[in-house]
Design a protein around this nucleic acid. Structure first.
Length: 188
DNA sequence: TTTGTGATGCACT
DNA sequence: GTGCATCACAAAA
């Protein structure tokens, strides 16, 4: 995991993040679900150009973009090339279970980090993390030993560009936010 | 099992 | 004023 990893198209980064372990201050787990967003498609925050909110999406690759969702939750993205980013949607909890359970107020491993808002609550991600470099503490990445089997599908919770198959998941994972339906599968 | 809706903040039109 | 890259819980079916 290095700077070059993020300096690519978000679709590639989103796919390659599946199976990677993400920890924040010692709490986290294996990334099992991601979505890619590019500046030239209307579902992306960057579609209409830079604003105060999405400014870090247009900065250096390898930084965190955090925004408030529906007034209640936080969502964590990894910035790739300018205007593109990967939304982290779900983790399989591995480390710091107690802290995450306490922050979430529940202990079910299937509900701990299975959704972008849940994941941020479990890891303690807030707007304070917006713009922070990913290749430095409190962030920590661990690559998988063997390449994971990946499935693809439509992105969730958007109303524009709904047909782009830019959602990626770990095949067979029970920790995703929603099942992958229809045609899936993919070669790395 | 699927569908509906309230809570809640703020960027953008 | 509108519309969310959501979640949790209730109600219908």
């Amino acid at each position: 995991m290095d700077q070059q990893f993020f300096d690519r198209a978000s679709v590639e980064v989103a796919r390659d993040l599946i199976g990677v372990e993400l920890d924040v201050c010692g709490a986290g787990g294996v990334i099992v679900e991601t979505e890619a967003y590019e500046p030239d498609e209307p579902a992306s925050h960057s579609f209409r150009g830079p604003t105060q909110r999405n400014a870090v999406m247009f900065g250096q690759p390898g930084h965190a973009y955090v925004y408030r969702s529906y007034g209640i939750h936080w969502c964590l993205n990894f910035v790739c090339r300018p205007g593109s980013a990967v939304l982290i949607r779900a983790l399989q909890p591995v480390r710091g279970l107690e802290v995450m359970e306490k922050r979430r107020g529940l202990a079910d491993p299937l509900l701990l980090c299975s959704g972008p808002g849940r994941l941020c609550q479990a890891l303690g991600i807030t707007i304070a993390h917006n713009g922070l470099p990913l290749l430095a503490p409190p962030f920590e990445f661990t690559s998988p030993n063997t390449p994971p089997l990946i499935v693809t599908g439509r992105r969730i919770g958007i109303s524009q560009a709904v047909d782009l198959p830019w959602r990626f998941g770990l095949s067979g994972s029970l920790h995703i936010s929603r099942k992958f339906t229809g045609k899936g599968g993919l070669a790395p």
